[in-house]
Design a protein around this nucleic acid. Structure first.
Lengths: 246, 246
DNA sequence: CGACAATTTGATCTGTCTCAACTATGGTGG
DNA sequence: CCACCATAGTTGAGACAGATCAAATTGTCG
């Protein structure tokens, strides 16, 4: 464990993709104490049923929120990248209803609940920002229900790719047409409700159609417009604010 | 339009299934102005893309939040009963990312945003309650992703039935083993990602197994324990508070 | 009673799963 | 530096859950 400094700017930037903050808000967030931790891949950061005393911020790597269903089947309900705070809910709900798993080696920061509560009591705009974050998350889950419930495999996979790209782009984790999403095809399957075998075929279809190619963990989108069309993707459910470019 | 009185107690009771309120909180909620409206079945209460100036409270009937995907397919992402406030998010997010459809004739109450905002500014405990509501909703959506993504048709349908029963029970809309859920089999299909034909067969299986029978819109659960088992249902994701029985 | 919506049943078709084998790829220790 | 092993991806064949299409039956309500 060690103190982190620019970990703060990562989650502040993330928050600002969805909520307007002023300089005082940012100051208050920067003052939150944060201890950093390293994690190996495939480690659980927290498990279903647990209580938490801290919120975690992802500093690097990729995590997934997972739910287990009868028979050991796994459903991934969201992916999280640098800047995300995947367990903000633990501030208000005492037991986790899912687990958070590191899909890669990663670095996370821990911020004590009471310091976040104090900050948002002092600055209601921060409380609103966290509330909004929860609402946007809800909107994304709704889209996932529709994705898994009513879209064909190809659209489904393409949709998840579009979403990851857009969300990563919003916090500067992409280049113009490619991004690093170091997850396995099985993970993608657990996120889309498909088998890993079928994910493989679907990725091949996307590749042959000249939409997305992947070398290792780096994925390149060759035709954003056509990918969006086949994915039936409309980013408005992400509720991203128009960014004032620096 | 006419003024409503006991509409308030319905949504107060609903809020209290998830958050602790004190008498002052309840008072503040009771003072919120509310206009009631009647709606025919199959009417949209709001549509995707719209902005809202009021939040609605369901006083009677059943509504569903719907998302449309390419090709006119529909996905229902949640059901709402008396006491629910399905568009609380409009307080903080300006555009609706889905629509709200009346599945039956219904009565709703409208409460202006600014009055809710004023109340929660005055009483932070109310702001927290709304925030919690959003988080619990998120938890339910996660469960739906897992339900639609990783469960078989029989478990899926049973799970939705279990959830509706539990949520309605929490606000006193059930008898000991039966409840009125006036939705069509097609609606159930749109909620579970199955075809209406297959829902029909699945309901028959549930009936033949002696788990659930339905006459008209009234459904009776004959073996709660076995239904819960076949549904893989664990209510903890609803984050219901232990109720202090009156 | 007629009209329309909802449910039931049957037959056929298709997407996706499962199982199984095979091929990169990369890391590790000898 | 290479032989080995683990992990991830690729491909094929057969099985099955659930979709689609079509038709018949049963409400339900004006």
């Amino acid at each position: 464990m060690q103190a982190s400094f620019d970990g703060h700017s990562k989650f502040i930037r993330q928050l600002e993709t969805v909520s307007r903050l002023d300089e005082d808000d940012r100051q208050a967030l920067r003052r939150l104490p944060m201890l950093t931790r390293r994690l190996d891949a495939n480690r659980d950061i927290f498990r279903e049923g647990q209580k938490a005393t801290d919120c975690c911020v992802i500093l690097s790597g990729v995590a997934a929120r997972c739910k287990m269903v009868a028979g050991g089947r796994r459903q991934i309900v969201s992916f999280h990248f640098a800047g995300d705070m995947p367990d903000l809910q633990s501030l208000l709900l005492d037991r986790m209803d899912h687990s958070l798993t590191a899909l890669t080696a990663m670095q996370i920061g821990m911020i004590p609940h009471d310091t976040i509560r104090a900050a948002s009591r002092l600055r209601p705009n921060l409380a609103d920002a966290f509330h909004r974050q929860a609402l946007v998350e809800g909107s994304i889950f709704r889209e996932w229900v529709a994705n898994v419930g009513r879209r064909m495999a190809l659209e489904r996979v393409a949709h998840v790719i579009c979403e990851c790209f857009e969300r990563m782009a919003a916090v500067g984790l992409t280049t113009s047409d490619s991004f690093t999403l170091p997850i396995t095809q099985s993970d993608l399957g657990d996120a889309t409700g498909l088998s890993n075998v079928h994910i493989n075929r679907t990725m091949q279809t996307l590749r042959k159609a000249g939409l997305v190619t992947s070398q290792g963990r780096v994925h390149t989108i060759h035709d954003w417009k056509r990918l969006r069309d086949t994915a039936d993707f409309d980013s408005s459910y992400l509720h991203l604010l128009p960014q004032v470019t620096a």
